[in-house]
Design a protein around this nucleic acid. Sequence first.
DNA 1: ATAGTGTACATTGTTAACAATTAAATGCCA
DNA 2: TGGCATTTAATTGTTAACAATGTACACTAT
Lengths: 202, 202
Amino acid sequence: MSQPQKILSVREQIADVLRSDIISGELKPNTKLNEQQLAERFGTSRGPIRDVLLKLTKEGLLVSRNNVGSSVSSPLNPDVQKLSIGIRRKIEEFAVKQLEGRLTIDHFRQLEDIIEEMHDHFEGGRYTELTKTDIAFHQYLVELAGGEDLVNIWYPIVIRMRMNYKRITTSIKLVEEHRDIVNALKIDDTKAAINAIRRNIK
Amino acid sequence: MSQPQKILSVREQIADVLRSDIISGELKPNTKLNEQQLAERFGTSRGPIRDVLLKLTKEGLLVSRNNVGSSVSSPLNPDVQKLSIGIRRKIEEFAVKQLEGRLTIDHFRQLEDIIEEMHDHFEGGRYTELTKTDIAFHQYLVELAGGEDLVNIWYPIVIRMRMNYKRITTSIKLVEEHRDIVNALKIDDTKAAINAIRRNIK
DNA sequence: ATAGTGTACATTGTTAACAATTAAATGCCA
DNA sequence: TGGCATTTAATTGTTAACAATGTACACTAT
């Protein structure tokens, strides 16, 4: 058997689809999301949809107003975006330091599998999937180092930053940057790993 | 008329009460929250309760498992806590820099009203309310500088940190520290304001 | 005794109808 | 014609019943 396929609840799957739609730009900023329409699209009732909208609002992808509804957030203010990059670096540098000497063969295989997936998505031109896999790579490290708690802090920052990027900036270098990170971790060169992370986060 | 009292939806009020219960320690870590019981306690149905539990989970105060339920989170790992302090400082220093020369008389009066409220809560020994007012003070600055987006990033960090503090550490110095911040802002001494913020966040 | 299985119960997940609120459309009057 | 009140339609908020799931307990067989 290959990778253990994670079981996702209906709501998590719906949230994933909407996140993709927003990150890909298919759903543009200020687009109003109608609960009834979404319910029909996903073949559920409005209940689970409301749950998903609440979650995405807390993640910063949507803005909600009482008795009015949810709509897609606008891109981050450039100053806040710059601050976010700094915070993200701080968190992931922390993660790398914490993981020094604690990574096993299995961990490295997982990371390399993720990179392989990134590579495939890049080759296939699936840029939205590429972005999600990119996030998954970093999330793996952050979770390993700081657990669910740190992911909770880290995730809204990352997902919100991603809204601002356009695929134009995507090149094969993205995949290579992640290989650099893993290679540095493999030889337990924390300093090099931190530098690789810093180069990747921008 | 005094301060304009903000209108809160039913769900926001329920969320506030539960946040207080958790921060105050009345609800201890790992306590299981039963939807039906909460619904009866607040005189609503389970629907709004579920919304609130979802929100608090995204804030990090609760941990949820599918088909099992939500329970109160455990205190942060000390390393993550330290990291959180650093991030919070970074955000609030950013806020102070952004606000340089942009604060009006009205803003200062708002801030001083909040400090007055902190003072009253301190005198009355209402430490949970004191904590919430403390958060409100900082949120006011963060929101002013970075808007809803920055608050979204900042809030889960702060609220989660607060779970770890016990009232033992509370003294009148807490109130004075906030006066220092406002006084520095008043004379537009950003450097002093940043120092005051750094002293206060720990 | 104990590991494993099956059943009953408690709890969460989902649904569809109903209530409350908001935004838009209509009509009125100056 | 422009501003304002009123009505109407669309949308979100809430509820209670029902479905699905997980947990705990008793039972059985070895």
